[in-house]
Structure formats: structure tokens, C-alpha cells
């Protein structure tokens, strides 16, 4: 797989950032940078990363299928992750998620027809103290109510237009 010069440079820098023999530690950042550029983690990207850090494609798969921020299919321009794990659940995270489903008309790991939004129900994101929490791309939002979620989504929609 040929990478863009920027991605190539990032990969090389990452591989140098870890002590010799620990190159596999670069797996997650490589996948994230790759996904940012390509739109999702493709088979080619998996093979490429596996080859560069000396693991099997299956080992890359083990890692990427564990983390909710890595996607095998392209997600929307804005990827909304709603936590429904225990702390968030106790603060109505599940209702928040249902609300998001209704509002966007899509379900878990689905994207809107215009490709603007996608939704995912996720496990704990480490933001329990500010439950219920959601994440939009790389940004966190805390103590989210359905009303706040509406405002946020509407704002993003306007941005998109």
C-alpha cells in the first residue's frame, strides 16, 4: 500500500519513537493516523501496519476490534459516541443514546445518508466523573442532557451546510 508522504512521515516517526524491539507499541497511533487520512481501517492498512511492526494481521485485528475509536467502515464526518456504561447509565446515558438514535434516525455504528453523522453506543470512555459523557470525533462533552445534545447536533448540522 502506498501512503501519502505525510502519513509515511508520521509512521516513520512513530516507529522511531519506541525502543528497538517495541515497535508494536506504535500500532494504535498508526491505525488512528491511517484512519484519519483514509476514512476507516481498511484491509490494506491492517496489512501495512502489521508488516511494519512485525505482527500478524490477526493481531492487529485483535486490537482494533477492541477499541471503539477504530472503525472498519467509514463513519460520518461527525462520529458521535454515547457512553452507556455503568456511571453514565446511572445518569441516564441510555436515554441519551436513545434520544440520539431518534434524532439522527440511525442506530449503532450506522451513518446518516448524507454521510454527515454516525452514531455509536460505547463502553466507558474514562469520563465517569462527568457522566453522562459523549464524544464527537476527538472532543469530549460532559454532563450532557438531551437538550444539550440537540443544540450540539443542530450546531454541527449548520456547520456542515
Amino acid at each position: 500500500m502506498t501512503l501519502s508522504p505525510q502519513l509515511e512521515a508520521k509512521f516513520n516517526k512513530l516507529l522511531e519513537s519506541y525502543p528497538p524491539g517495541r515497535q508494536r507499541s506504535a500500532m494504535i497511533p498508526m491505525l488512528l493516523y491511517g484512519q484519519d487520512e483514509i476514512g476507516s481501517v481498511t484491509d490494506d492498512l491492517i496489512e501495512e501496519v502489521a508488516g511494519r511492526i512485525g505482527v500478524t494481521a490477526l493481531q492487529v485485528n485483535e486490537v482494533l476490534s477492541y477499541y471503539s475509536m477504530l472503525h472498519r467502515k467509514p463513519m460520518g464526518k461527525y462520529h458521535i459516541q454515547v457512553c452507556t456504561n455503568i456511571s453514565c447509565l446511572l445518569h441516564d446515558g441510555d436515554k441519551l443514546y436513545e434520544h440520539a438514535c431518534k434524532k439522527l434516525g440511525i442506530g449503532h455504528k450506522e451513518a446518516t445518508a448524507d454521510g454527515q453523522f454516525s452514531l455509536e453506543e460505547v463502553e466507558c470512555m474514562g469520563a465517569c466523573s462527568w457522566a453522562p459523557a459523549i464524544q464527537v470525533n476527538y472532543d469530549f462533552h460532559h454532563f450532557v442532557t438531551p437538550e444539550q445534545l440537540d443544540r450540539l447536533l443542530d450546531g454541527l448540522k449548520k456547520n456542515a451546510v
Binding site: T56, L58, Q59, N61, E62, S65, Y66, Y67, E123
Partner: peptide, 15 residues
């Protein structure tokens, strides 16, 4: 190295 564990939580499985 033909087997691995994919996914997370209750849906984790051998692949």
C-alpha cells in the same frame, strides 16, 4: 499464531 481474540466484553470471541 493462527488464533486471536477479537472484539470486547461479552462479544469477545476467538477468531
Amino acid at each position: 499464531k493462527a488464533l486471536g481474540v477479537i472484539n470486547r466484553g461479552v462479544v469477545s470471541e476467538i477468531a
